[in-house]
């Protein structure tokens, strides 16, 4: 519970922050994962660069048919934002179920995405939403799609010196229904499995579906086989069941004290069905 000595800087501007990070500084956002690791000395960064005070990273705005969310926006702010609740309800629902109130009030969307915990909630939603991440380094800025961002356990497309500056998610049109279904690991608050679903249904037919899965594999993924199984159907009980049955196919599932790989895969199927039905119930 006693971290090693470290240097701490709270830069006034993003540019200053990125300079220090380029020199090896470790970005600190909400600190919900990093600080506990430091207290146990499992992590011992020499220099923490606190992004929390950069006001220009804390925003939610609608631009060009999408929502742009600054990296240091807290889960609580995302969950309670009228804009997000109205235009991207999947993200608001997901944010509202992260950890506990303390975590939601400190933890940030950029921090969570960059950390890429294989059991975190946000990555499921990001996959289902086909979110884009604006990654910024001292001398560069690029935009990467969620599908190309999450690479492996804690491994992302972030290059050394880069931070997640902004998350971009789509604004839902009237045809979509969404839902996030989570089995909570009760000690940590992480997802044993979490299923994020978006479905567009028009005139009784599913136009497209997006299914993001977290907790099951080494990183959150899109269950495209499920999505294909649903497209074109009316979303009836049997169709949903059949489509969901393949959600964990070919996945090397995680296994730990709280759930074996076999049980996790089973939960993924059950909760994919439940998430799909809940989302379908919300389509027009």
């Amino acid at each position: 519970m006693i971290p090693q000595t470290f240097e701490y800087t709270a830069p006034k501007t993003l540019e200053e922050a990125l300079q220090i990070i380029a020199g090896g500084g470790k970005p600190l956002s909400g600190g919900m994962s990093l600080i506990p690791m430091m207290k146990l000395r499992l992590a011992a960064p020499d220099h923490l660069v606190d992004l929390g005070r950069l006001k220009d990273l804390h925003y939610i705005r609608e631009e060009g048919g999408a929502l742009h969310i600054g990296a240091t926006t807290t889960h609580q702010d995302v969950a309670s934002s009228a804009l997000v609740r109205g235009k991207c309800p999947l993200l608001a629902q997901t944010a509202g179920g992260v950890g506990d109130p303390q975590v939601r009030n400190r933890g940030t969307i950029g921090g969570s995405v960059a950390h890429a915990d294989p059991s975190a909630d946000y990555p499921a939603a990001m996959q289902a939403l086909e979110a884009k991440f604006v990654l910024k380094g001292a001398k560069s800025e690029r935009t990467v799609a969620a599908a190309d961002f999450f690479l492996d356990t804690f491994l992302t497309a972030l290059e050394p010196g880069e931070i997640v500056r902004e998350v971009i998610v789509p604004v839902e049109d009237g045809s979509t229904g969404t839902h996030y279904e989570k089995v909570v690991q009760k000690a940590s608050g992480f997802a044993v499995v979490g299923i994020a679903v978006r479905i567009s249904r028009k005139a009784g037919k599913i136009v497209w579906a997006r299914v993001g899965v977290t907790g099951l594999a080494n990183h959150a993924y899109r269950a495209t086989a499920v999505e294909k199984g649903l497209a074109g159907t009316s979303g009836g009980a049997t169709e949903v069941q059949n489509a969901a049955a393949v959600v964990a196919d070919g996945i090397e599932a995680n296994s730990d004290l709280h759930a074996s790989a076999e049980y996790r895969k089973h939960l993924a199927v059950v909760h994919t069905i439940r998430a799909l039905l809940a989302a379908l119930a919300r389509t027009a």
Binding site: M37, T153, F190, N218, N254, D256
Partner: peptide, 13 residues
């Protein structure tokens, strides 16, 4: 003690 849920996945990685 703290990495229980990660040990399996990390080893595989």
């Amino acid at each position: 003690a703290v990495g229980q849920r990660l040990i399996d996945g990390t080893a595989r990685m």
